[in-house]
């Protein structure tokens, strides 16, 4: 038994090293992207991917507590509109409004999740869906501030330049910091308690984990980051319209999470990167482009039940089996 633990220990340490190296390569690659891709449009897509990665990762964080937040895109919109209105009409610096937006989204999240914490699974999902629709309509009806259905334009930007490169680096940094914080939360005691609530709220409450407290906490943290992502989007994109945040966007975020892999922290990151970028490549197909997205969905969901993140594991297992059969011969 003791030797087994030791063996696992050394192999996990080795795995840690390879992981660090892999992350290093990945981050270097990300740093060099503006050099590889000079086209502003491609850089624009990468910037949007970063925004959606924060949104999807924060959504997954809420989902670990067993709540499916179908208002998540509306919260992205809330963050975006708050930051846009504060920086345009109130005249705050976009850098400040960005973080105020995150706190506002968190505040609204906390405010609704106290009453909503009584609702289980499906009911929570549906009520949050309805709330999201309502929130968006509220934003739409404040026409003087938000421009209504037509949207808001001329939002002050973060940088005083037409180049997209500073945005890319700034958003990359914000995304990495957000992900690290979310990851720290997930592997902390809070993360474990959230998963315990998801498994069984009865058992977890019997061992003294307050269900309401942790469910609210999950929503608060998730909404903070999605609000931040919204603010980033607003002060980058210059214009906003409600349709960018409707419930179909939420559904796509769920898809990013599921296709990437719900059970793994990197799932939403991979899922967003793959599902947001690949269909863009086919955008020349115009009205046929959605079929590409759908094809990817079906392909992944039928072939890799646990999402894209399980591919390395599957390859590894395949490689090992091949090695062991060749050895036995």
């Amino acid at each position: 038994m003791g030797s087994m633990i030791a063996a696992r220990d050394s192999s996990s340490r080795r795995k840690n090293y390879t992981q660090i190296i892999l992350y290093g390569i990945l981050i270097c690659f990300l740093l060099f992207i503006p050099l590889f891709f000079q086209s502003p449009y491609v850089l624009h897509l990468f910037i949007l991917t970063l925004v959606y990665i924060i949104a999807a990762a924060s959504m997954r964080f809420i989902m670990t507590s067993g709540q499916i937040p179908l208002a998540h895109a509306a919260f992205l919109g809330l963050g975006a509109y708050v930051s846009a209105v504060l920086s345009k009409h109130v005249g705050l610096s976009p850098w400040l409004s960005l973080f105020i937006a995150a706190f506002v989204a968190m505040g609204v999240g906390i405010f609704i999740s106290f009453p909503f914490a009584r609702l289980k699974a499906f009911y929570y999902a549906m009520v949050s869906l309805f709330f999201g629709v309502g929130l968006l309509q509220a934003i739409e009806s404040l026409g003087k501030l938000t421009g209504g259905l037509a949207g808001i334009t001329a939002i002050p930007t973060l940088f005083n330049t037409a180049s997209k490169v500073p945005y890319y680096y700034c958003f990359l940094a914000l995304t990495l910091v957000s992900l690290v914080i979310l990851y720290r939360f997930e592997v902390s005691r809070i993360g474990w308690n959230l998963k315990a609530i998801d498994q069984s709220y009865l058992v977890s409450s019997s061992v003294g984990i307050s269900e309401v407290k942790y469910r609210v906490l999950a929503v608060a943290i998730g909404c903070f980051f999605v609000g931040l992502a919204g603010g980033m989007y607003a002060n980058y994109n210059v214009t906003l319209s409600p349709s960018s945040f409707d419930s179909s966007v939420t559904l796509w975020m769920i898809i990013y999470v599921t296709i990437g892999g719900m059970n793994n922290f990197s799932g939403p990151i991979i899922g967003t990167a793959v599902l947001f970028l690949i269909p863009q490549y086919f955008s020349g197909l115009k009205q046929y482009a959605p079929f590409i997205s759908a094809a990817i969905l079906f392909l992944v969901i039928f072939m890799f039940r646990n999402g894209l993140v399980c591919i390395p594991g599957l390859l590894m297992a395949f490689y090992k089996r091949k090695k062991s059969t060749s050895k036995s011969r």
């Binding site: 559904l251 999470v257 599921t258 046929y288 969905l297 969901i301 039940r305």
Partner: peptide, 27 residues
């Protein structure tokens, strides 16, 4: 049947189906 009891996967498959059928009709 393949996704019995897995609500996230069901959502994904349903969205896939919706995307295909709605766009096919729309086109």
């Amino acid at each position: 049947r393949p996704f019995f009891g897995n609500i996230n996967s069901i959502i994904v498959v349903c969205i896939g189906l919706i995307t295909v059928l709605v766009n096919a009709v729309a086109i």
